[in-house]
Design a protein around this nucleic acid. Structure first.
Lengths: 152, 152
DNA sequence: CACGAGCATGATATATTGTATCTTAAAAGA
DNA sequence: TCTTTTAAGATACAATATATCATGCTCGTG
């Protein structure tokens, strides 16, 4: 397992890192985007776009529609501020938005918690296998469903 | 990459293998199940439950509702006759239902084709990483989105 | 500052995917 | 045959995702 020596952000620090990253990409850090990011980062497990819409609605005191949230989540995923958990139709905030690499999610079928592990040798293996099969621009989706330590 | 020396079924042979496998599990091979399996196997790319429902409806000359198809697909996935492609919300027939192992799908974002590769050393690596992180009963979901050789 | 172009969001509708529940029908076992 | 279990039908609905058009905001430019 490769080690992770970079900064793991949290709270305001994470929000700031996200803002910095997004503006670096030439995108705006709007109030709505900040609100969506806050909501996303506030969940302790992968959240659906609708969960986030509801949370943002509460925080803003007005109804925010899911499509706006989807738009922003798509932007976030593209900018590496968030990740989509395919097998859960849900999203999580990326704890180190500045650092690009493939990741592996472990999702507990019982409690819904997702933990994120990095293992570049594994993900590289998957990328390479895809390339060997003639695939270009590979974007690995590596998730494991199972039962987490707390739930056995 | 581990070699695959077992039989790769197709057509009637595949259907027969599926039937054999399912009955071995103590499940019935009904007309409806056969029809769903035929439809599924007839697609050249991952098919959604609704695609399959439509296809079966056509083949049977009567309306078959999606929930019936879902039930049967769930059964098939449980019995290893079919696989779910998480990142596409779709299903594919398993070409070698008798042989259990994790698999890796490469899904083309352009044409929707999915190819299936096996690499037990990779999937074992993912399983082991999950176990090392305290996960039990791991079921890896390994897919790669990208562009297939025909589409670049 | 005014203004126009482009970007961001709102509002709304609808498509797609997935479950729940209850009823009816068919098959297996006694 | 009769009963029990399993499969399938019918229907309703929930959850996830996208499309479209209208409105509003921001930023660069004059």
């Amino acid at each position: 397992m490769t080690r992770h020596d970079h900064q793991l952000h949290q709270g305001d620090s994470l929000t700031e890192a996200a803002r910095a990253r997004l503006t670096l990409q030439g995108e705006q850090w709007t109030g709505m985007r900040a609100a969506v990011f806050e909501a996303l980062a506030g969940f302790d497990k992968p959240a659906s776009a609708y969960d986030i819409a509801e949370q943002v609605s509460k925080a803003e005191g007005r109804r925010v529609a899911a499509n706006s949230v989807y738009r922003i989540l798509d932007l976030f995923v593209g900018a590496n501020l968030a990740r989509r958990v395919e097998s859960a139709n849900a999203y999580v905030a990326n704890q180190h938005p500045g650092c690009l690499h493939d990741c592996i999610f472990l999702i507990c079928d019982t409690c819904g918690q997702a933990v994120h592990i990095d293992d570049d040798s594994l993900t590289k293996g998957v990328r390479d296998a895809a390339k060997a099969a003639g695939f270009s621009a590979p974007r690995p989706v590596i998730e494991v469903r199972g039962k987490c330590g707390d739930c056995d």
